[in-house]
Simulated scan of single mutants.
Amino acid sequence: MKNGHWRKITWVVSALLLIMITACSNSKFNPNEFSEQDLAVTKTDSEDKITYGMSQEETEKILGEGTSTGVGQSYQYNNGITIGYRDAQVVSIILNKDSKGYFKTARGAEAGMTHQEILDLYGKEHVLVESERNIDYAYHIQKEIFLDEKSLQAEKDDLAIYRASFMLTKEGQVNQVILSDQRFATTFK
């Protein structure tokens, strides 16, 4: 009887571990893939997330009150983060060099990383633009495809296109991360 009891416990524990491992692996980001989850940053000290579509009120509960940048509806907050809003909802998240150690993208990218570290996280296969000074990705969320320059120019629905852009110093380190929709990326609106 005792032996059977331990087998049941061992089986249940094994099943729970398998479920946990599977759940964790499903939430992992893979290079050369993109989703709406990519348009988020996490505060490193609290794990609070700022996500695309979040309300300005929710965002400011996490970040405090911002100062207008004078560009569109963008506000700068402490520790190197700037948020762009449209209709009081987050449509752009910018991390500058002062955000290092305070904020990371959902994938773990942050200011100070190298060109190669960004490619390792986001992938090389679907890069829209890659140069010594920047790496850009464009993804159509409804069609679930990456866009090249030609298809980006042809696309009319600028709210369905998500951008991840990384500006680099001449030494090849990230000094700005920009996550936004295409409309904000091109018009600041």
Results as ranks from 00 to 15, higher is better:
H5S: 03
W11Y: 09
L17D: 05
I19L: 12
M20H: 03
I21T: 12
T22V: 12
A23H: 09
N30E: 14
N32D: 15
N32H: 11
E33I: 09
E36W: 00
E36C: 00
D45Y: 14
E47L: 13
K49V: 12
T51G: 01
Y52E: 08
G53T: 05
S55P: 08
Q56D: 02
Q56R: 13
E58P: 02
L63D: 00
G64N: 03
T69R: 02
T69V: 04
G70W: 05
V71N: 07
S74A: 13
Y75S: 10
I83T: 00
G84Y: 06
R86W: 08
A88L: 07
Q89K: 14
V91P: 03
I93M: 15
D98E: 15
S99Y: 02
K100T: 02
T105A: 01
A106E: 05
A109P: 03
A109W: 06
A109K: 04
A109Q: 08
A111V: 08
M113N: 01
D120C: 07
Y122P: 02
G123M: 13
E125G: 09
H126E: 11
V127T: 15
L128Q: 01
E130K: 11
E132A: 15
E132P: 10
N134M: 14
I135L: 03
A138D: 11
Y139P: 10
Q142N: 15
F146T: 06
L147V: 11
D148C: 15
D148W: 15
K150I: 14
Q153I: 11
A154P: 03
E155P: 05
E155C: 08
E155H: 10
D157S: 14
L159C: 08
A160S: 09
Y162L: 15
S165V: 11
F166A: 01
L168N: 05
T169N: 06
V174T: 04
N175W: 12
N175I: 04
N175S: 05
V177S: 00
I178F: 12
I178V: 14
Q182T: 00
R183V: 14
F184Y: 15
F184H: 15
T187G: 02
K189L: 01
